[in-house]
Every structure is written in structure tokens, then in C-alpha cells.
Design a protein around this nucleic acid. Sequence first.
DNA 1: CCAATAGTTTGATCTCGATCAAGGTAAGAA
DNA 2: TTCTTACCTTGATCGAGATCAAACTATTGG
Lengths: 249, 249
Amino acid sequence: MKHAPLIAQDHLRCADCAIRHKAVCAYCEPPELAKLDAMKSYRTFQAGETIVWAGEEVEVLGSVVSGVATLSRTLPDGRRQMVGLLLPSDFVGRPGRRTAPYDVVAANEVMICQFIKPKFERLVSATPALERRLLDMTLDELDAAREWMLLLGRKTAREKIASLLVIIARRDAALNNTPIGDGLRFTLPLTREAMSDYLGLTIETVSRQISALKKAGIIILEDSRHVHVPDFVALLDEAGDDSDGGFIS
Amino acid sequence: MKHAPLIAQDHLRCADCAIRHKAVCAYCEPPELAKLDAMKSYRTFQAGETIVWAGEEVEVLGSVVSGVATLSRTLPDGRRQMVGLLLPSDFVGRPGRRTAPYDVVAANEVMICQFIKPKFERLVSATPALERRLLDMTLDELDAAREWMLLLGRKTAREKIASLLVIIARRDAALNNTPIGDGLRFTLPLTREAMSDYLGLTIETVSRQISALKKAGIIILEDSRHVHVPDFVALLDEAGDDSDGGFIS
DNA sequence: CCAATAGTTTGATCTCGATCAAGGTAAGAA
DNA sequence: TTCTTACCTTGATCGAGATCAAACTATTGG
């Protein structure tokens, strides 16, 4: 049987597309999947707004359409570690679980394409292709988490910063459908504090290492949020390894 | 419909049991699942033996029956970080993926209950309950990985050691069906070097912190591998948080 | 028995990133 | 405009954990 892609360029734009993508093709899509279209709704969160509180019952799940959200855990004494970064097309929520063990917070204005959980789960149960797709997405998240463990446990502050820049640059390029190469330009969607939470560092160290990369000519800062990378390979080199960060599936 | 547990005490003993557990019950098990019994075979690996090389094609998957295996990633310059610990009943292998991005190594003598991958995957495709169970197990692994990210990014060396001891103690107790409490006694299945790889520390720091916990009376060492915990709550307290480590699902 | 090997512990010193502290910058409100 | 607030940068100092070095323990094999 011939398989044609169900969604092309804009498969990142909303949750049901992100979920259907790869799960099925235009020729063999189970009719149940079309129901996703009817079920979805959109919701916007402001920067800093908490989308899900750790331990709280979650009644909704979906995926990020635009903006950036963070997953983070906090120790009783306030130490915080980000455990995931949700960029457009990433899935939010845990199918089959009642609560999340971490906070989900909007880093900037975030639009979510969402489904009512029980409805969505009923559809999943009835649609093996959807179940398979969710497993596939969860394996990608697991790879990303393990890649991050290597970074947290063994990389230097400078390598951590470079690695984060590489990931953001790659995702940014993928989102805009532009090739990755020299002369790359992108916007940091995170504050220095959020970066420090992600990298297991302090704000000051993040700021210092970014300044150091700037001084070394690896990056050029137009302002604190706008990065220009004249030589992408040089940045990759600073990251300590050449893996794809587990974020490309 | 009434649900009865399919497997009781010994559900940890082999892969098809670990996988069937929770997926189904004695009354509603799909007939396909019985095929797991016919497909499984056992294989033993010596301590230090590599079960799967990073990037290598994997033709087999299954779960740990006895012993301990580790998942680890290595940077080009040799720095190593363990990204997962496989204790009895844990699943090995990535359904639907051709290769693994990390090495799987036997920490001591390990017995695996294994399935031939294509056969297993065909069965999975035909058995939605199995697919769901795999998703559930993968979500547990993801939770554990994220818990570990918090440890790697934000905990002190002492808290890291205490956290690892708590996890091993809990798994050990679960395996032997004994309650967790004071007067706990267990064997460390890892060398100091493996612990340092897991915790993002050096061997020396691991050794020193274990000595410090011993001096503080939190643990009593019968020899370097045999630990006695007089007061479990005191150990928990040293771990910095009271979560279950994501290892209990 | 001794030698060799692998793992563990302890000490001395160094260094990277944390901490403490002070300014700088940009955007919005009064 | 000036005040406020949030965010970012830079400097000085400190300390937890790394590194370097040596000794100790247990096991295996000749």
C-alpha cells in the first residue's frame, strides 16, 4: 500500500496534527482519528502563568501550538530543577495518569491545543494507532530526559550553555523550516533564571558563561535575548558532543 | 466485570509476567497474551559484560529477572553518566526503535527474559492491552529520569548518596516482599565507580560521603557492600525530599 | 606462600561554580 | 519625566567537590 503524508508543513501547528503525524497516513487513517478535529479547543496562557500545578488533578491534555512552557520540580527548601522544555509541537499531559509530579509553567505567552482528558482517553483506547503514537512520543521524551541527565551530571557550565543554545537553535530552525547552518539568528525564549533552572546552575553563572561565549566570538548578542551564531560548528564544538540532544526524532 | 490479578507474588520473576502484570487480569486476558509464554527465552550475562552497545542494532528485548544492569552514555572524552538503573522486573529495550542511544551493561550477573524483537512487536501490534502496558512502563521510566534530573542538577553529594540508598533499599524491600522500616539491611549491587557514574560524582566523593553517613550513624556498614539502616526516616531525611523517587508506580 | 589485580578509603590541594554584593538596563506606571 | 520593578551583568570571595597521590583490603592465581 502506498503511504502519503497526512499533514505537510504545518503539522506542528496544533495538537491533533502533532499526534496524527507519523501515526497514520492519508490512505490508512482510521476513521476514529477524524474525531480529534471535533474535540479540540484552544487556550492561551500568559507568561509566568502556571498551566498545571504539581500533584494537582489534570483534566486536560494537548500540545503546545506556540510559545514555550517548562516542566519543573522543586525541593522542599526551594531549590528548583527544570525537567523538561515544551516547545511548539510538544505534547502536554500524561495519558492514563491522574496527576503530574511537576509544575507546568508558561515561559512566555503559550497557546495550547487541548482535549478533554476522558474523551481523549476513550478515543485512544479505541484507536491502536494513537496509542502507538503516544508511546513513540513518550520514548522521544525519555531520550531527551536521558540526554539531559548526561548534561546535568557531566558537562561544564560552558558546555551546558552551548548545549542549550544548540537545542534552541535547532528547534527554532525546524519550526521556521530553515536549514541549520552558519549565520543563524534566533530568540531566547527563556529568562536567565529559567536557563539556570534548566541547566542546574545559578543565574550569575549563566550570565557569565554567555558573556564568555560572546567574548570568544562563538555567539554575538544583539541584546540579551537575541543571539546570532556566525559559525554553528564552533558552537556545536563548545557543547561537548555532537549528538542531536534527543530532541529530533 | 470482576477483575482478578493475573499474577501474584512472583510477577517480578520474568518479562512476560512483568509486562502482563496490570495490563490484564485473569478474567479478561486477550488470548494473544498467552503467546508470550511460548516466545520467551532466558539468557545470562556476566558482571561487566555489555548487553547492548550504544548505536548498535538491537535484535532482542525483554526484562531483567535477576541481577542489575545499567544504562549509560559517554562523552567523546570519556566522561560517563549513567542514565538508568535496571533492577529485577525492569524492561530492557525500546519497542519500535532500531538502536539504543546508550550502553546497557551488566553490573553483576544478570538474567534476562527475552523475546525476539520482530516477533514481540508483531504481538504488540495485535494486542492493544500490551501497547498500553508498554506506554505505562515508559511513563514510569520517564518519571524516574526526571526525578533523577532533580537529583543531578540540585542535590548535594550527601543527598545524592542518601537518595540512591533509599532507592536501592525500596527496590530491595519490594523484591523480597518485606516492609520498609527500621533495621533494614541490604546489599549494594553497584561498585563505587558505578555509583559515581549514576550520581554525577567521582569515586572519591562517593566513598567520602558514605563514610560521612556512617560516621553520622545514619548507616552501618558491615563491609563495603552490605548496608544496615537503623533508622529509615533518618536516611530519608538525608535524601532531601520525601518523594518515592519515581520508581514506585 | 607471595604476587597481581580490582576495588575502596583517606589525605592534601586546587578549581569551578556558588554566594554575596553592587551596578546597569529596559519597560511600564504615576 | 521620574519612580518602580524585573531582569541582566560584573566583581570579590568562598567552599563543595574534583584532582592528585598514597595506602589499605580482598580476591584470585601461580
